[in-house]
Design a protein around this nucleic acid. Structure first.
Length: 486
RNA sequence: GGCGCCGUAGCCGAGUGGCACAGGCGAGGGACUGCAAAUCCCUUCACCCGGGUUCAAUUCCCGGCGGCGCCUCCA
């Protein structure tokens, strides 16, 4: 399988330390607020990568951190007059629930920064000892010039040289630093801030060091793949590389850097600071997990993805199409097997050919830098074939047709679950949360059937239109009246 | 200002040096239906602009224009 490697700026065959085992580190959240659908997009990308590799027989060791101590957490804690710890715990619990509801596989290991303070202090000390870092009044900074003089790759990931970064001139001036591009490994605690004791006084880790320490601790060096969204390329991942390589002396420390595109709204990046975010929780409640996942996967993971209600409604309609196709196949399979003849055999073999071709192309698309958008196209070819077959062929299927229909259904559900869709939800009959409501609905449908039989269509239509206003759509099919939520 | 990505039908969105079969949504027409819905069929025929390379460019190169991301916390 090929993945686009940000470090080399090209698609590369995924090379791993051990054959068919992927050691993957994904940058997790800073839990200072509810997670939004932009975060969820990134996590969905790595979730699909993992599901796909596991489907192909790989083992994936997936480490995803919680940056549970940070300026923003402290700020939020002060606003709400609670401890930083409480804030972090609260939003970690919330995010874990949201991720589960979205159908994300739980990472193998989810380390917290606050549980690795000693490891971090050791790492910072080691960097100082080796001359890659210096302490200034309780702070410790990474010495980029020193690093660059030995490793010659600072800026490689983000495509900027050290000089260009300085010329950017927006690097925060900090009197303590020897150089504007140097960055904090350890930050001295200000009054009323949480702290840990260290050789440099009371303080807490800087932003990037936790990922270096925890990725190396749990995955070793070099490890296979490091993921995150593009907005982490600089400075976070650039600095992480410098720290890790200075620490271990191995270059490159990560074989493949994978970055997902950001989620935008009206063309602007979704972010807390712009206030244009939709929480994952709200989106799940309103739309459900499958539509959200389809929206994510219908754009290539490296492209920006613009979120809109219109698009998610489109995703819902697409999903209904898949659902209908599966239903149609089930119905056909449930009918009596008809006698075989040449026409049926030929139809079956045509369907089989389409199925095998679409499946092959699906895998090729996935192997080509996780092109889920293209892969979905092939999946919809199978869907379309099933629907067309159903519309054209009125007689019940023969043995050979049943064989291929059954294969189509299995393949569809299989590929859908590889992409992480909840197939059970897709296949399950519609339900209302309220059992009584559902009974009443069934009663109404029964009454309406009687009305229709007596050709009292005015009343039957009244029931249908009133239910429609309540968000229930009725569809009269040869198998009786079906209902669904709208 | 620097670095990078992108510009494909009404919308979203894959893709390719050789007639653009992606796929989805939407719209219009038809079939089906008591009427709808769903479904099927048909229509909706698009590669930002200007150069260059080439027998051939939407695809490669250069230059514009436009959009976005990063350069400050960000998934």
């Amino acid at each position: 399988m090929k993945i686009y490697n940000t470090r080399t700026r090209q698609k590369e065959t995924l090379k791993t330390r051990e054959p068919n085992v992927l050691h993957m580190y994904v940058c997790g959240l800073t839990p200072y607020d509810s997670m939004h659908i932009g975060h969820a997009r990134a996590f969905t990308v790595y979730d699909v990568l993992r599901r796909y590799l596991e489907h192909r027989g790989w083992r994936v060791i997936h480490v995803q951190n919680w940056t549970d101590i940070d300026d923003k957490i402290i700020q939020r804690a002060n606003e709400l007059k609670v401890s930083a710890k409480e804030i972090a715990e609260r939003f970690i619990a919330e995010a874990e629930e949201d991720c589960r509801d979205l159908g994300l596989l739980q990472p193998t290991i989810m380390p917290c920064v606050t549980e690795h303070i000693n490891d971090i202090i050791k790492a910072v000390q080691m960097l100082i000892d080796r001359g890659y870092a210096y302490a200034r009044s309780g702070n410790v900074y990474f010495d980029v010039s020193k690093y660059e003089s030995e490793f010659h790759d600072y800026g490689l990931l983000s495509g900027q040289t050290r000089d260009e970064l300085i010329a950017g001139a927006r690097v925060a001036p900090d009197e303590d630093k020897d150089d504007p591009v140097d960055f904090a490994l350890w930050k001295a605690a200000k009054p009323n801030e949480p702290f840990w004791d260290s050789p440099w006084g009371k303080g807490r880790p800087g932003w990037h060091i936790e990922c270096s320490v925890m990725s190396l601790k749990y995955l070793g060096a070099p490890f296979d793949l490091h993921g995150g969204a593009t907005d982490l390329v600089f400075p976070h991942h650039e600095n992480e590389i410098a720290q890790s390589q200075a620490l271990i002396g191995v270059k490159p420390i990560v074989t493949c850097w994978m970055h997902s595109g950001v989620l935008t709204v009206g063309g602007e990046k979704m972010s807390k600071s712009l206030g244009n975010f939709v929480t994952l929780r709200a989106a799940l409640k309103r739309h459900g997990k499958n539509p959200l996942r389809l929206l994510y996967l219908s754009t290539h993971y490296r492209s920006p993805l613009d979120y809109s209600e219109e698009r998610i409604e489109g995703a819902k309609a697409s999903l209904r199409r898949i659902r209908t196709a599966i239903e149609v196949i089930n119905t056909k399979l449930a009918t009596e097997t008809s006698e075989e003849n040449d026409d049926k055999k030929e139809r079956a073999s045509e369907l089989m050919q389409l199925l095998e071709e679409s499946t092959r192309l699906f895998y090729e698309a996935m192997d080509d830098d996780l092109n889920t958008a293209e892969a979905l196209g092939y999946l919809f070819r199978i869907v379309g074939a099933a629907l067309t077959y159903n519309a054209i062929v009125k007689e019940s299927p023969s043995h050979s047709e049943k064989v291929v229909l059954s294969l189509m259904k299995d393949r569809l559900t299989n590929l859908l679950s590889v992409l992480g869709f909840d197939v059970r939800e897709l296949e399950a009959p519609e339900r209302l949360e309220d059992a009584l409501g559902e009974e009443l609905l069934k009663l109404l449908i029964e009454v309406r059937a009687q009305l229709r039989q007596r050709r009292l269509f005015d009343l039957a239509d009244l029931i249908r239109s009133k239910l429609s206003e309540l968000g229930i759509a009725l569809e009269d099919t040869p198998q009786g009246t079906q209902w669904r939520k709208t």
